[in-house]
């Protein structure tokens, strides 16, 4: 399997990359870790004439803390996220999720920015970014802007990114030590996309759930923010009735495809099971 011909560019700054994308137009594509784009180039489902490799842009890779916000460069790899002390301390749900993405080889190259920008509902990071209310900084030839993860996903492979724009960084508020969290993913084998997956972040005070946020992966055309499900938990003691209500609310908003991972009915139920498990594990981690 050999991709179609293309010209290759390796800019050393994000400004240079977006200038190239603007100049070369629709037939140019940015290349991050390459593990979504290169496979579709091999099957010729994608045949860009120009490939702009972002791998040479040092400024796009790295993790830093600014006040109460963690800023992650778009070219930071899943392996970086798995081994970062800053991420382990401030956003431990991220490595829990990264560990369930693809396999070790792919995690060395696969990036957070590529995962969130691709618009594939099978990717795990988008639902997590919605759950964590992340903000994406994007750069185009016309300048920089920010887009909330919760407003980014418009359809399958269809996002709020304009042609010629790239995601440069992801900003996420650090989780407090008292926050409970879990990412639960059902997959057929290592490397598979989710049959269904759920991200849960919640806080508890005096036995009452004071905040909750829930994201769902690969059970609709886009990642889902399950707002009604989260609302069912807030103010409750996280008792069975409240969790049953949350699971029902989450199942109600799913619309999974019928594919080799199962029927829509099965995948909807599995979204509920993943959510139930994630809530249970988040509860064991929440303090307060």
């Amino acid at each position: 399997m050999i991709p179609g011909r293309f010209d290759y560019y390796r800019p050393s700054s994000a400004q240079e990359a977006v200038a190239l994308l603007a100049k070369l137009g629709d037939e140019a594509r940015p290349l991050a870790g390459g593990h979504s784009l290169i496979p579709v180039m091999k099957t010729r489902l994608a045949a860009p004439e120009h490939l702009i490799d972002l791998g040479g842009i040092a400024d796009l890779r790295g993790i830093k803390v600014e006040g109460d916000t963690v800023v992650i460069g778009a070219m930071t790899t899943q392996h970086d996220l798995l081994t970062s002390k800053l991420i382990a301390e401030h956003l431990p749900i991220i490595p829990e999720t990264s560990a369930l993405i693809a396999d070790p080889q792919i995690r060395y190259l696969g990036t957070l920015g590529g995962n969130v920008a691709n618009g594939d509902p099978g990717n795990d990071m988008p639902a997590l970014m919605m759950c964590l209310d992340a903000t994406f900084t994007v750069l185009g030839a016309g300048g920089e802007r920010t887009i909330k993860a919760r407003e980014f996903y418009l359809g399958t492979y269809y996002t709020a990114l304009e042609t010629g724009e790239i995601v440069t960084s992801i900003r996420i508020k650090a989780m407090s030590k008292a926050t409970g969290y879990a990412y639960e993913k059902l997959k057929r084998k290592v490397g598979d996309y989710a049959t269904a997956a759920a991200a849960v972040v919640l806080t508890v005070s005096g036995g009452t759930c004071t905040s909750a946020s829930i994201g769902l992966t690969n059970v609709a055309e886009t990642p889902l923010l399950a707002e009604d499900a989260a609302a069912a938990l807030i103010g409750s003691s996280l008792d069975k009735a409240a969790i049953d209500k949350a699971v029902a609310a989450a199942e109600a908003i799913t619309n999974p495809a019928h594919d080799a991972r199962g029927t829509p009915q099965y995948r909807t139920k599995m979204a509920g099971v993943m959510l139930r498990r994630a809530i249970a594990r988040a509860m064991t981690r929440a303090h307060g």
């Binding site: 390459g34 070790p104 080889q105 190259l109």
Partner: peptide, 27 residues
């Protein structure tokens, strides 16, 4: 497999294990 699943093409590149079927030589 040539589809980044099987790992038979794994090589070590800059202290990373990578599937060389899913990396361009120019990279």
């Amino acid at each position: 497999c040539e589809t980044s699943h099987c790992g038979a093409c794994t090589v070590d590149m800059n202290d990373m294990s990578v599937k060389s079927c899913t990396v361009f030589a120019v990279q």
